[in-house]
Amino acid sequence: MLRMNKISKVFSTDLIETHALREFDLSVAEGEFVTVTGPSGSGKTTFLNIAGLLETFNSGEYFLDGEDVASLNDRQRSQLRNQKIGFIFQSFNLIPDLDLFDNVDVPLRYRGFSSAERKKRINYALERVGLAARAKHLPSQLSGGQQQRVAIARALAGEPRFLLADEPTGNLDSLMARQVMELLEEINSEGTTIVMVTHDPSLARRSQRNIQIIDGQVSDQQQLAQAV
């Protein structure tokens, strides 16, 4: 599903060059649930942004679902991101002035679906996370756990094959974190590939494989369970 060969990413200022990723190699198979851990500043988020086509890299190769992304222009990368990738963020990143229905609608708008198709998908996605009854509520009217479930519904509405989660339980209490994790596991069991950055070792242990990043390189990989 994802293959990175010798990816390097350098952030340059006038005074200093920061090597966020150094000859970073990683492959993630279709249907796998991979967690990424590492200390702050190790390059986890840079890896996630490159994987999600939000940032470019300086050298190396990156194939997403067999497609070489280095040669794509912004429009093609956006299209690929819209069709194949779902994002879940630590701080949910829901648009505060849009109700839940319209929040879930955002990626579908850029996909060019008809109004009826969008409506069907939005209702299904919200039902899936148990929030269909609150479709007309604003994010501020929900708890943190509920907001993250809406963000998951938004990520799922376009039926992506690849889900990128950046510390999705970081802002939640343990009960809500467990609920969100169970939801992600359920999604993964249906065949969606998930790569999740986390600081929580207990959550990392629940994935099939844990990758530790230190100084922009994969320092350790642990096979924890058999992929679905």
Binding site: G52, L54, D74, R75, S78, Q79, R81, N82, Q83, F87, F89, N93, L94, I95, V106, P107, Y110, R111, R154, G158
Partner: peptide
């Protein structure tokens, strides 16, 4: 800016 960032992550191109 935040909203624009979210929209970009969800598939909006720069042009959009």
């Amino acid at each position: 800016m935040n909203e624009a960032g979210v929209r970009r992550a969800l598939g909006a191109s720069k042009g959009q």
